[in-house]
Simulated scan of single mutants.
Amino acid sequence: MQSVAAALTMVRDDAFFLKAWLRHYGDALGRENCYIVNHGRGDEVAQLAQGCNIIGIPGDPHKNFDMKRWRMLNNFVQGLRCYYNHVIVGDVDELVVVDPGAGIGLLDYLRAAKLRRNLTPLGLEVIHRIDIEDQPITDTILGPRRHVRLAPHYSKPCVISTGHKIARGGHFTQSDKLFAPDDLYLFHLKFCDFAAYARAMDQRNSVTAALDGGVKDIAIGRHWFAEARGEDRAVFEGFAALPVQAGFDMGPIRQRMVQSWQARGDTGFWQFDRPDYPGQYVLPDRFVGVI
């Protein structure tokens, strides 16, 4: 039994991503330290997450979805902090990973981490190069998929050991200090597999269609709406056009985060610049099999 770290997410019918989330955090922290909000009380989610702490909530369509979701997750995080040193919170397609070059696993990494600070992993988006990657994803994602692009929007302060509030979407906190460790990454998996992407988007489009409203009315990400989706294959074919960057030195990216750190207006939250970085990277061999 450990009280170093817990992982928390909310999911509805995303079996592909939930399996990856469970493999990663279940192995790293123990399933007894994984907390899953089962939106809609789906049977498949309950079956996959056996051994975890499952919190069932109603799945009726309602507006202000993201506002309500993050209000609830904020409260769960602070409750779990009464019993754990760190709480990792995020969407089911987001996984926090320690660079294998550090020679230490996630649990031991957090066991050694200082408290009363929020850690911000560097966001990397795993992309499926359908032109050259034809191996299906089975037990692991990194291996069949080796290409990533920088995703500043997913450099989230998601490892929490303070009482600071987290903003909707998990992108900001009220902490006025930035802690972005060199060895910590957040892998965003939305685009890691063409077929899984299409299934997930079909499900999300059906949710927003049932709500009968626009982005402002529903308060959910624009990407959940069918009109913002675009043509799936064209999205993935576009990854081939991204120039491949040499090496894998993320130090300058983290330094830019530090240099641009500032208050987010008068909201009480803090942020760094989130520019669009060109290109893609090939992950070093040491990452193969990590997730």
Score class of each variant (00 low, 15 high):
60 D>T: 09
111 R>S: 06
238 G>M: 04
14 D>P: 00
137 I>H: 08
144 P>S: 07
211 L>W: 09
214 G>V: 11
281 Y>W: 15
119 L>N: 03
86 H>W: 15
269 F>D: 05
83 Y>V: 09
150 L>N: 11
252 P>M: 07
82 C>K: 07
92 V>Y: 02
70 W>M: 04
132 I>F: 10
283 L>Y: 12
132 I>D: 07
215 V>H: 11
89 V>Y: 01
127 I>T: 08
169 G>F: 08
65 F>E: 10
120 T>R: 13
148 V>M: 10
216 K>Y: 05
119 L>S: 01
23 R>H: 13
143 G>Y: 13
89 V>D: 04
75 N>T: 07
17 F>Q: 11
9 T>C: 14
52 C>R: 06
38 N>S: 13
26 G>Y: 12
260 S>E: 12
91 D>P: 00
63 K>R: 13
78 Q>T: 13
266 D>A: 15
39 H>M: 10
139 D>H: 12
62 H>T: 01
72 M>F: 11
11 V>T: 14
248 F>L: 07
108 D>W: 02
263 A>P: 02
247 G>M: 04
232 D>Y: 12
122 L>K: 14
282 V>N: 09
106 L>F: 09
191 F>G: 05
291 I>E: 03
156 K>H: 08
174 Q>Y: 04
129 R>M: 14
27 D>T: 15
137 I>C: 12
161 S>P: 05
194 F>W: 12
101 G>A: 08
113 A>G: 00
85 N>V: 02
248 F>P: 14
238 G>T: 10
135 Q>Y: 06
104 I>R: 06
31 R>S: 15
83 Y>H: 13
136 P>N: 05
212 D>N: 15
64 N>W: 03
75 N>A: 09
233 R>E: 14
157 P>D: 07
209 A>W: 05
71 R>D: 15
109 Y>Q: 05
135 Q>C: 13
86 H>E: 02
124 L>G: 05
57 I>D: 13
276 D>P: 02
161 S>C: 12
37 V>D: 02
50 Q>V: 14
3 S>R: 15
239 F>D: 13
257 M>D: 02
260 S>V: 06
245 Q>E: 15
73 L>R: 02
166 I>G: 03
118 N>R: 01
189 L>W: 09
68 K>H: 04
226 A>F: 08
92 V>K: 06
155 S>C: 13
233 R>P: 07
259 Q>H: 07
152 P>E: 00
282 V>L: 13
291 I>W: 13
169 G>E: 10
227 E>P: 02
